[in-house]
Structure formats: structure tokens, C-alpha cells
Design a protein around this nucleic acid. Structure first.
Lengths: 228, 228
DNA sequence: GGTCGATGTGACCGTTTGGTCAGGTATTCT
DNA sequence: AGAATACCTGACCAAACGGTCACATCGACC
């Protein structure tokens, strides 16, 4: 945790340091990040750095809280078209939020991607709860709910599908952002909202249809197998 | 490219060096990998290292060729149940190969994952061809063929679906390997083949059904939209 | 045995790393 | 004015880094 000295810093200086750190952590994972690069970019002495943070991992975890705060902000900024979203509308919202986040804060999205990648690497088990860690726990609950609501097919292996949605959520955002091209800059500039633009929504429609209805033209679901 | 000196090395020594390098590159990306760690693990002098390789990137690219060679080996080791696989059988084969590779050569799979992650990071555009790089080009052709064969729905956005399959292929293997638990060790030991074990195939059935038929219990495909 | 080219070696180099710390400065309180 | 407190600073440190090179060792051929 950052020291109180850091918390008491004038905002401009604090932002300067955080900005330098974000730039560094967006380019390199924690393992390869350099204190020297950060302090020189932020324009502070190295001694000051160690008055603010215990070490570079300390700063990194501080930046991670900023990342999740900003991400939550983006999620909540998306309009709720219904008080009660059905299952797939909710999923669409989650995916839209990921893309919006990627476009508005590409550096923060990069940091998040590094973090996901490296925390998924080892056993990928939460040492406290013993459960799988990461976004798929959220999707697990989501799918279970969906089955209860008769939205999700009962034969779906919830655990596997949750994992799949997790990696799709984490991976599709940079692709979609790139694909949006010029439009992405408009969204980043606030001139356009992701939910208002019909070409963007067409893309999401297609993505959601793939998730809902699959790729096959004429799916041969082996109902017999699953009903036994 | 490794020097001729390296190519002329007695096999045991060459393997020793490659093994040390594989261990290092499976744990850290190229950026963070250390020459010192490799030479000390391989039991050679640092001077020797620089007689074999120009630098660490040179060794890394050499290891990458081993990775893809071994991966190809795994792919070809899977039995061809049909000379002409239909679209989804082919896809199943690709995914099975990814899992088999993950189980038999977890270190090589880790190296591959690092490589995919870092080469996807920047623009993710091949500077020579101008096309998207990575496994999704293969899936692009695969989906196009599938549409021609009436296996894949015509409304599917081929480019996006190809990207999605790419990230699923890259991400699902560690999950499935972990989920197979004890069985995975048997496969790694060669006591069991991935295609012969019915619990494993059940998992693949479910995965393929999700890809083919989607998650929804009663998909509401907007045919009107796509036909216009 | 002697020569010669190929290969192996680790001390050594300059640079960069994370981290420390004695000392300077700025502000506030008495 | 003087003391106290908080903060800032960059020279400095040991360790690790990638990379070099003079020299040792080896095997093959004459």
C-alpha cells in the first residue's frame, strides 16, 4: 500500500507519478517494469519513490486498483435499457463494457490484460477459496442464473462455458477496437457512444448471435446424449 | 540463427542447452529471460553461449521452431478417422491437438502462449502482408470453407468468428488440461490417448456443441436482419 | 611430437538494476 | 529567531545484466 506521504501529495504530482507508472505497466509486465524508467518519466528522485511505495510491486497493485475503479466507472456509465436485463442482454452489456474500456483507456486495458495473463499462468487457483480465479466466476453465476431463467440450454457445461466466456471477454476487446478503426477514436474522444452507433451494434449483434445460436447452419445437437 | 558450431554439437549437449532454454522461456517471456540463468542451468560457460547464438533472441527463435515442430508432430499423431473431415470434425481435431500439446509438452505450450500474447499485443498486423497475424488466418479459411460446404451459417461474421476461435484455441487448453486432472498425467505418460477416453470426449462433445449450437436454449436468430 | 584450427572457459567490462541514506530544503509551530 | 517536522534529493551501493576476449583445451593431421 502506498504511504500516507503519497496520499497527501498535491493531486497534480500524484497524477504525474500515476501516469508514468501506467505508461510503464502498459508496456511491460510487472516482472520487467523498471523503477528507474518510472521515476525519470515522472520527474521525481528515486529517493522520493521509496518514500511513496515499498517497492515496484506496491505501486503496481496501487495502479491495479485504479484500473478496476475506472473499469467499474465504464461499466456503470453504460445506460441500462431495462431494469431487469435478460441473460443475453446482460452478457452483451459486459462485452460492450470491455470494448468501451479498451477504447477509452487502452493503457489501462493493456495493464489489465497483462494481469489476467500472468495471474492465469500458474495453477490459476485462488489459494484462499480453492476456486478458480478470474472473470469466469462471474460468468459461472451468470450461466447458472441463465439456466434457471430458461435462457441457457440445460446441457451446457457451465464451468467450461464460463471459462470460455472469460477468455472471449478478455480477448475480443482489442480486436473489436481495432476493427472499429476511425470510429474508435470518435468514441475515445467522447463524440460517439458505443451504444448509439449502428455499425458497432451490428457487430455486437453478430457476436451475440454466435454465442447464442452457435456457428453451425444446422446444429446437430445430440439431445439423446444429454437427456440420458 | 544458431551457428554451425551449435548444430555440430553432440546431441546430448545440444539437448541439455535446449532444455535449459525451454525451462527459462516457459517461465518468463523473452524480454525477462536471462542468459546467465540459461548458461548456469545448462552447465556451460557464457563464452560458449555466444559461440552458439548471436544473442538471447536468437536462441529464443530457435526454441520457437522446436515448439512448432513438436506441435505439428502432435497434430499429425492424432488419428484421422475420416480422410475428409467435415468442418466441425476438423475444428474438433484442432482443439484436441491444442489440449494434447498442452498435456504432453506443458513447457512448450507455455512458450507458445507467451509468444501468442506478446505478438498479439501491438497492432497485431503482419508488417509484410498487412493481414492479421496469428492462428485466426487459419480459422478464416476454415470458416469460409465451412460456409461453402453449408456447415457454417452464412450470416456469421467470418473475420470476427475466426478471431474468436483463435482465442478459444489458445486459451482453452490449460483449462481443459487442468480439468482432466489425474487423467492428464496418464496422457502425458502415454498410458492413455486423448481420443480413446470417453470422459474426455464428453467434454469435447460439450465444447463442440456450444460452438455449433450456441449457449441459448431457444436461440432468437434475427434472420430478417441478416437476409436484408 | 608438433602444428593448427576448432571449441571451451571464466575473469572481466560497462551498464543497469532495485534499494539506501546522509544531507538539503520548505513549512509550520513556539 | 530558532526548533521541529515533513519532504526531497541524487550520489552511492551491491548485485545482476548482456557481452567480450585472451587464453586453455582438445582432436586431427603431418
Amino acid at each position: 500500500m502506498p504511504t500516507e506521504t503519497f496520499r497527501n501529495l498535491p493531486e497534480s504530482k500524484r497524477l504525474q507519478i500515476e501516469h508514468a507508472a501506467i505508461t510503464e505497466f502498459a508496456a511491460k509486465p510487472l516482472q520487467s517494469a523498471s523503477v528507474n524508467a518510472i521515476v525519470s518519466q515522472a520527474g521525481i528522485a528515486k529517493g522520493s519513490f521509496y518514500q511513496y511505495f515499498e517497492n515496484i510491486a506496491d505501486l503496481h497493485s496501487h495502479i491495479l486498483t485504479i484500473v478496476s475503479k475506472k473499469k467499474l466507472e465504464v461499466i456503470n456509465s453504460l445506460p441500462l435499457d431495462n431494469a431487469n436485463l435478460d441473460t443475453f442482454r446482460y452478457l452483451r452489456r459486459v462485452l460492450q463494457a470491455a470494448v468501451e474500456f479498451q477504447i477509452r483507456y487502452p493503457e489501462l486495458a493493456s495493464i489489465e490484460r497483462f494481469e489476467r495473463f500472468y495471474s492465469d499462468q500458474p495453477g490459476s487457483i485462488d489459494p484462499e477459496t480453492g476456486e478458480r480465479v478470474g472473470g469466469d466466476r462471474r460468468f459461472h453465476a451468470f450461466l447458472t442464473q441463465g439456466i434457471l431463467h430458461d435462457d441457457i440450454a440445460t446441457w451446457v457445461d457451465v464451468d467450461m462455458a464460463a471459462f470460455m466466456l472469460g477468455i472471449v471477454e478478455g480477448g475480443i476487446a482489442p480486436y473489436l477496437a481495432e476493427r472499429l478503426g476511425e470510429r474508435a477514436s470518435q468514441i475515445a474522444a467522447g463524440e460517439l457512444s458505443i451504444v448509439d452507433d449502428s455499425p458497432i451494434q451490428d457487430l455486437f449483434d453478430n457476436l451475440m448471435d454466435i454465442l447464442e445460436a452457435g456457428l453451425a447452419r444446422d446444429p446437430q445437437i445430440r439431445k439423446d446424449f444429454y437427456s440420458k
